[in-house]
Amino acid sequence: MGVSDTEAVTAGEEGANGWDAVEDLPPSAKLVAKVLDYEDTLTQSELAEETLLPPRTVRYALSRLEDAGAVESRFSFSDARKRLYTLTL
């Protein structure tokens, strides 16, 4: 057993730590987080398009993710009416 088993456990723990904040959230929030993980930065309407979730569900998921500290939002420079969301995990 020895070093290789310890390294495997440590590597597994490091990969999961960032996602612990999302673990207890609803499935819609997990889906939004995963899409942001792949796409980097998106608006709420782009997230609704990518996830095929209703805009209201995406809005709720984003608020839950923001409360958990998993997502950051900022104003879009191209359209100040929109916010851009980025995963912080």
Results as ranks from 00 to 15, higher is better:
residue 60 Y to T: 14
residue 59 R to T: 09
residue 52 L to Q: 08
residue 26 P to L: 06
residue 56 R to M: 06
residue 66 E to N: 02
residue 3 V to C: 07
residue 19 W to K: 10
residue 28 S to P: 02
residue 29 A to H: 07
residue 13 E to P: 00
residue 64 R to I: 00
residue 13 E to D: 08
residue 31 L to T: 15
residue 17 N to T: 14
residue 53 L to E: 07
residue 10 T to H: 05
residue 40 D to A: 08
residue 52 L to T: 13
residue 51 T to Y: 00
residue 20 D to A: 14
residue 23 E to Q: 09
residue 55 P to W: 01
residue 62 L to M: 10
residue 24 D to F: 02
residue 72 E to W: 08
residue 50 E to Y: 11
residue 63 S to R: 00
residue 54 P to Y: 07
residue 16 A to V: 12
residue 30 K to C: 07
residue 60 Y to F: 10
residue 3 V to E: 11
residue 35 V to M: 01
residue 57 T to D: 04
residue 39 E to T: 04
residue 28 S to H: 05
residue 70 A to Q: 02
residue 31 L to V: 13
residue 56 R to S: 15
residue 25 L to D: 02
residue 58 V to C: 03
residue 15 G to C: 07
residue 15 G to T: 14
residue 36 L to E: 04
residue 29 A to W: 04
residue 46 E to L: 01
residue 65 L to T: 13
residue 44 Q to C: 01
residue 62 L to W: 04
residue 68 A to S: 11
residue 60 Y to G: 08
residue 41 T to R: 10
residue 40 D to N: 09
residue 12 G to M: 11
residue 69 G to E: 09
residue 35 V to G: 02
residue 33 A to D: 03
residue 54 P to G: 13
residue 13 E to Q: 12
residue 6 T to I: 13
residue 17 N to E: 14
residue 4 S to W: 03
residue 3 V to F: 06
residue 25 L to H: 09
residue 47 L to V: 01
residue 35 V to K: 03
residue 49 E to M: 01
residue 7 E to L: 14
residue 25 L to W: 07
residue 37 D to F: 14
residue 9 V to I: 15
residue 56 R to E: 15
residue 68 A to T: 07
residue 61 A to R: 08
residue 73 S to R: 14
residue 19 W to M: 14
residue 73 S to M: 03
residue 70 A to Y: 06
residue 42 L to W: 02
residue 12 G to V: 06
residue 15 G to S: 12
residue 42 L to Q: 07
residue 8 A to C: 06
residue 39 E to W: 00
residue 57 T to I: 08
residue 48 A to V: 13
residue 6 T to W: 04
residue 8 A to T: 15
residue 39 E to N: 01
